[in-house]
């Protein structure tokens, strides 16, 4: 009988990726609570040491890591590091930056025990787990911060068009949600001109109710044909939402004409957006021909 060693199954690519992600889930268990605080560094229990941080798209995030026992044991500067768990990208080591992404920075005052990771112009892809890691003689201790990137959204109830007759009432409702702080003001525009401060017309009313789900209502009583146009709602931290309002005398032919105009504008936009991809595609084709 040939003596064959028992081959243990080796992790495949997918397996180690799962292991990778699972590490993030079980990361908190890595926090070694048995370390003697007088001999090894440990994380201070502080309000600043949040485990969840919410930041707005395009905003600036501050992830705080406060370590005690650093000076006592003479821990070197390069043993406190920030890591992005999404792809295990090292961001910093001590006060020095490792990543070349210029949006990252380390805020540290020499002599203090706080290493704050600053992320400017936060993108959607920055969402995820970040780890502050301290080296110890037996391995590491970690503090995890989950960064949530929220994108405030504005939308107007109803479809993209609204048809009303003269003498009726235009009633537009704009909802702004997913904002870390409620916007203080909601702007209404008609054909790119602000409506909020037009005091000459008494029949326009704007009511805004701030909250987790901010609601702003635009009411135009007894509209005229000249009130037709593109109405836009936006806040300081959102992309604008638009709706086209048609005010008619009851003549359907005019409405159909305006729709055609709208369609033409859309086709123009589509044509322009196709230009750049065609250009790049041409370049790629040339490179392909050359390589072949």
């Amino acid at each position: 009988t040939t003596l064959e060693p028992d081959q243990k199954s080796i992790l495949t690519d997918n397996d180690w990726k799962k292991l990778w992600m699972r590490g993030g889930i079980n990361g908190d268990s890595k926090l070694d609570n048995n370390l003697d605080s007088s001999d090894s560094p440990m994380f201070e229990d502080s309000e600043l040491m949040a485990h969840n941080t919410t930041v707005q798209l395009g905003g600036t995030a501050f992830l705080v890591c406060k370590v005690s026992g650093v000076d006592r044991v003479g821990v070197n500067w390069n043993q406190i590091s920030w890591i992005r768990r999404r792809d295990w990208h090292i961001l910093s080591s001590g006060a020095q930056l490792y990543t070349n992404d210029e949006r990252f920075a380390i805020l540290h005052t020499p002599g203090s025990n706080m290493w704050t990771l600053q992320i400017k112009f936060v993108q959607r892809r920055d969402h995820g787990m970040y780890e502050c890691q301290v080296s110890t003689p037996t391995g590491i201790i970690s503090h995890f911060v989950n960064l949530q990137v929220v994108v405030p959204e504005a939308f107007i109830l109803g479809s993209g068009e609204l048809h009303v007759d003269m003498g009726s009432t235009i009633n537009l409702v704009c909802i702004i949600e997913k904002s870390p702080t409620p916007p203080q003001y909601v702007y209404w525009q008609k054909n790119d001109r602000l409506i909020n401060y037009v005091d000459s017309r008494r029949d326009i009313t704007i009511e805004t109710t701030p909250g987790p789900r901010t609601q702003s209502r635009l009411i135009i009583r007894e509209p005229q044909v000249t009130d037709s146009g593109n109405y836009t709602c936006s806040a300081s931290n959102t992309e604008p939402a638009s709706i086209y309002v048609f005010v008619s005398k009851g003549d359907n032919m005019a409405a159909i004409s305006r729709r055609k105009t709208s369609s033409a504008d859309r086709l123009t936009h589509i044509f322009r957006s196709m230009l750049a991809p065609c250009l790049l595609l041409n370049t790629v084709v040339v490179r392909h021909i050359f390589l072949t």
Partner: peptide
């Protein structure tokens, strides 16, 4: 830089 993924530990930079 070197990282030990199973330990989730930075080794060298």
């Amino acid at each position: 830089a070197w990282i030990h993924i199973d330990r989730q530990m930075i080794l060298t930079i």
